[in-house]
Nucleic acid binder design. Structure first.
Lengths: 209, 209, 209, 209
DNA sequence: CATGAATGAGCGTTCATTCAT
DNA sequence: CATGAATGAACGCTCATTCAT
């Protein structure tokens, strides 16, 4: 299923340490309140050294930003080449988010709190990643409509929003309350619920007309 | 259907002007980048005067915060007393968000970008509002399960996440791209799609086993 | 003879105080070593207030810069309209430098040490003022050549360099040693010596072929 | 005529390379903006190595400083032992500046921009070199007055200022505009003009009373 | 009510210098 | 000799907040 590793490669140890420290600090205080000195403290180095590895605070943030999207785009590329059922593809997307949250909760946290929404942090360049990703998910949905898995009378874009919205909100809830996913069982139950509702709906079949 | 007015009551004119200016400025620049002087400029007053009406920047933000939640809680209180079908109740929630976005796009924008996600702006007190609101929507879902509208085998909390996630993502998409809702027709189409998928699912009925 | 006042007009008191403090501080420590906090200390205010009156350190420096050149250009404009002998015109230039040095030694000091030479502080825009001023003095020299006061076989540009070089070096010597001009007598003696040598040369007439 | 070599003696190759790189870098960016790392880059070495050859940045600058003055004092010592006419002696001084500018424009540039004027870079120790040099030139002038070449009614110190000012301003003009001296012809024309004006003045003989 | 001058905590960033390898 | 990782003093600048007028 091609889980793409998110942990930075080709990066010196110190760089990784700073990267993780930044993630942790930004998670705790938010981008604006995260001082370079806080990040350095968390990394156990002097603040000057941060500038040895990263051009500035913005650059450090961009690195986090790219780190996140690279993993996600790698997944989407993987998925697009698969012949598997649409439901499987969507489940992979959900699980990717949850798996990453387990491996690197800070990264997902920062994505949810600082990347996903903040207009303050959103440059045009960054907004582009979003549209790109949305488009890739929409491609999967559209593929599902062509294969006859999904209703053709519903706007593919709308379906994409609904699907991703559900996933994101689960993540947000976990992030905001600092929850841990308790295990694969829970993870799968959540994923299955999303897929189930998205595919077959929440309504009780017996009550249908 | 009980649309609750969001425009502040019991507030002097100047106070309202500052409030709206703050909303507009925070929308444009984000909370941290929104200077008191920017807000004052937008309000057409001197920055010193802001402190006559609001204790400080935090207080101004809190006012926006409460403004948002008050409207939403009033809606939820209204809904809880109704006897209408669950689908109607949920649609009211959706339409409330969309109507507010039409009336006061800045407020919704700030909610999405600065309130809904930002851990930086999230104090424990503020987090409480979220849980409270989530709980109220969950009550509706649970009521639906008891009435037999919703499947009982799905976790009510999860269903709540899925539902609100869908709504929030539509709003986010509009907010991030600064879209206007083009009219009641589009608004209803979106609301119906969400309700439709949430209730009956996205799968093509003819392809079911 | 139209001495143009250099003291800033249309400027609030505080602005002038900061301006003078900047002059004094830059004189003492040089532009780069002159901290905003030093300037503020010299002005008896908090450093934050400097930014209330000037955009930044660069802007403060530019103000000094313009202050200097405005005075000088006003003088040159005045001179160009006069019918007086060339020697008088040149003497006015010399006296202007010396008078300004008496009135505002810090300004001349900063001109000599930070404006006149520093390539570090020289932007293209600033270089332009120099060429402009050089050109105006050259016009006077050229006028002198046409009137028959000066030899036509000598390059007017070269004569300008020689003349201004002499003046500037006198100023430099005073500036670097923090000398005061001891009175009008000394001032006139220096001016006359420059004019005398420039016009008739340093050689002993009796020894001429 | 005793051109003294300016290229450092008794210095390892690396030291010379760093020296030249410092000159070049300080010329381009000014002393304060010239980072040790810039100098190291220009020298093609690591910045740590600079500290192997020079105690610190100040020491590097002092070396340049001394380099410049050593050459000039060697020239003045040479001149003082000559029996040649005063005009020749002065011309040697002029040509020395111009020759050095041709050989080592960076050195002259740094002299003009960072040494000659900057109070910021002027320690008491450094100021001493200036007075010393001025004194040596003044000795030549005074010798000229005793020999009857120069008028005795003019202050020797003043004449020195005028002479050196003229020379320095020519250099400044070239330095600030990054001009090259186009050849020996131009160089001699400039030198002759300075000598000519200094000796016989700029006034048209025919118009004299 | 209203203004904006005044303050100073706070923070990003630069860069000379040291030193382990 | 040579490298560059590491340190931290220093400083420009922002901006929330106070308060005299």
């Amino acid at each position: 299923m091609g889980m793409t590793k998110l942990i930075p490669r080709n990066r010196t140890d110190k760089e990784s340490v700073i990267f993780e420290a930044a993630l942790k600090t930004i998670k705790q205080k938010g981008y604006h309140r995260a001082r370079i000195s806080d990040i350095a403290d968390a990394a156990g180095i002097s603040y000057g050294l941060v500038y040895h590895y990263f051009k500035n605070k913005e650059d450090l943030f961009d690195t986090i930003f790219k780190q996140w999207w690279e993993g996600l785009f790698a997944l989407m590329a993987d998925i697009s080449h698969q012949e598997s059922p649409i439901a499987d593809k969507l489940k992979q997307v959900i699980l990717y988010f949850f798996d990453t949250y387990k491996t690197d909760p800070e990264l997902v946290n920062v994505f949810i709190t600082e990347i996903s929404r903040s207009t303050a942090n959103l440059t045009t360049a960054r907004l582009h990643y979003f549209k790109e990703f949305m488009g890739l998910v929409e491609d999967v949905i559209r593929e599902g409509q062509q294969r006859g898995t999904f209703r053709k009378d519903l706007n593919a874009r709308y379906l994409t929003y609904i699907f991703l919205g559900a996933v994101e909100t689960f993540l947000s809830a976990m992030v905001l309350e600092d929850q841990k996913i308790k295990g694969d069982a829970q993870k799968n139950r959540i994923a299955d619920t999303i897929i189930e509702v998205f595919l077959r709906g929440a309504s009780d079949q017996r009550n249908r007309g």
